[in-house]
Design a protein around this nucleic acid. Structure first.
Lengths: 214, 214
DNA sequence: CCTTGACTTCCACAAACGTAGAGTTCTACA
DNA sequence: TGTAGAACTCTACGTTTGTGGAAGTCAAGG
C-alpha cells in the first residue's frame, strides 16, 4: 500500500506502514499460489517494498508464512465461547460464530490462508487437524450426548466448514447470494440435529438419548 | 497393412509402465506440495524415471498436471446418474455415489488432485466451480422443488463435499473411523432434507412430510 | 539383414528463487 | 542537539527449477 519512492534508499518518512502491507500481500499470494508458489519478490512487489525488508521483519519465508496465518486471539475464542452457552442453542450459534469469522476482513485473511495452506501442505494440515480435534473436540465433548459424541461434532463441524468453503472460497453463486441470516437459519438446525438429535440405526425415538448403539 | 493401425511401422506404444508410474507420482506430489511446489525432478525420482521422460510424454509441466487430474469418464457419470433415480432417493444415493468416488483408488487420486489444486490455483478453482454449477446444477434443477432449487442443491453438495474433505483429506479421526454405511445413513437424510424438505421461513408446504428425524 | 519410430537417458542453459550483508535515511529519546 | 537504532534499499551469490536437444536403446515391420 506504500507508494514506491523513486530511487531513494533508507527509511521512509512517516509511520511505518510497510509491515502490514507485507502481511496483507503475503496472505493474498499464499492463498492464491500456495507456499512454494508465492515468491518473496512478488509479495514485496505487491506491497510496494523491497524484498530485503521481508527478511528484516520476518527473517524467513516460513517466518512470513506463520506470521501471515496468525489471527487475533479473540477470533477462536468467539467460536469456543459458544460451548459455554446452553447446548440446545449450539447449532445456530456455532454456525453464526464460525461464518462471522469469514465475514470479518480482519480474520478472513488468516483463516483463508490457514485453510488453503492446510490443503497444500501436510504440516499445516496436521496443525489444523490438531486444533480441531484436540481443542474444539475436547471443549465440546462433555456437553454432548453419550452416543458417538466425536462423530456428532465431526459431522457438524465438517458441515459448517463445508458451507464456509463453498461460500468464501469456491464462491458457489447460490451460497454467495444467500443472506447470512438465511444461511444460518438453514444450516443451524441441521447442525443442532447432528449434535443432539437421534442417530440413525439406533432407537430413534429414545427420549433419554441413552443408547449405546454403534 | 495387416493391422488396423494403418501402415505405420516402428515400435508401438508399449505396455509402458513408466507413464503410469509418472502419473501416480505426479498426483502424489501435486496434492502434497501444490502445482508450483511439486518439482518435475522429484516426480521423476519417485517414479524411478529420468526427468526427460516427463517432457517426452506430457511435454509440459502443465500437461502433466492436467493429465494427472483426468479421471475415468464413468466416474462423474456415476454421480450424475443419480439424478435419473426417483428424487426422494437422491439423499442417500448422492452421498454414497460421491463418497464411493473417494473410496476407489482409481478415482480418488485425480479427485484429490482436482480439489486440492482448486484451493491453491484460481484457474483450477474456476474449472471446478464451472463443473459443479453448470453440469451438476443444470442436471438436477428440473427435478427439485420450485423454491430456491439452487440453494437447496448448493447446501446439499457442499455438505457431502465437506464430509469427503474431512474424511479423506483432513482425515478427522471420527470420520475416518466411521463405516461408510454409517456415514451414508447419517448424512443421507440430511441431504435429502436440503433437497426436498421444507425451507425455514419460507411458506413452502411439505407434501410427503418426511420430516422425521430418522 | 535393415529401417522405423517409440522409449529412455544424459548434458546443458537461462531464468527465477531464497538468502545474505553492506550501505542509506529517518525517527526516538536523552 | 546529537546519537543509537529501526526502517529501508541495493547488489550479489549459490542453488534449484523448467525446458531443450542430441544421442542411445529396444521392439516391430519390410
Amino acid at each position: 500500500m506504500t507508494t514506491s519512492e523513486g530511487g531513494r534508499t533508507g527509511r521512509r518518512p512517516g509511520p511505518g506502514t510497510s509491515r502490514d502491507a507485507i502481511l496483507a500481500a503475503a496472505r493474498d499470494q499464499f492463498t492464491q499460489h500456495g507456499f512454494k508458489g508465492a515468491t518473496l519478490r512478488a509479495i514485496a512487489g505487491r506491497a510496494g517494498v523491497d524484498p530485503g525488508l521481508i527478511r528484516h521483519f520476518f527473517g524467513d519465508k516460513e517466518g512470513l508464512f506463520t506470521a501471515s496465518m496468525e489471527m487475533p486471539p479473540e477470533a477462536p475464542a468467539a467460536v469456543l465461547g459458544v460451548f459455554a452457552e446452553p447446548v440446545d442453542e449450539w447449532g445456530e450459534r456455532l454456525t453464526r460464530a464460525y461464518l462471522s469469522l469469514w465475514e470479518d476482513p480482519d480474520t478472513a485473511g488468516p483463516l483463508r490462508a490457514t485453510v488453503v495452506s492446510a490443503f497444500a501442505n501436510d504440516q499445516a494440515l496436521d496443525r489444523l487437524r490438531l486444533f480441531i480435534v484436540s481443542t474444539v473436540l475436547e471443549q465440546a465433548r462433555p456437553h454432548l450426548p453419550a452416543d458417538e459424541p466425536d462423530l456428532r461434532l465431526a459431522t457438524a463441524m465438517t458441515h459448517i466448514i463445508g458451507i464456509a468453503l463453498g461460500r468464501y472460497l469456491l464462491k458457489a453463486p447460490p451460497l454467495v447470494a444467500a443472506d447470512l441470516d438465511v444461511l444460518v437459519a438453514l444450516v443451524g438446525p441441521t447442525v443442532q440435529r447432528y449434535l443432539t438429535g437421534p442417530l440413525p440405526g439406533g432407537a430413534a425415538e429414545d427420549p433419554d438419548g441413552d443408547n449405546d448403539c454403534k
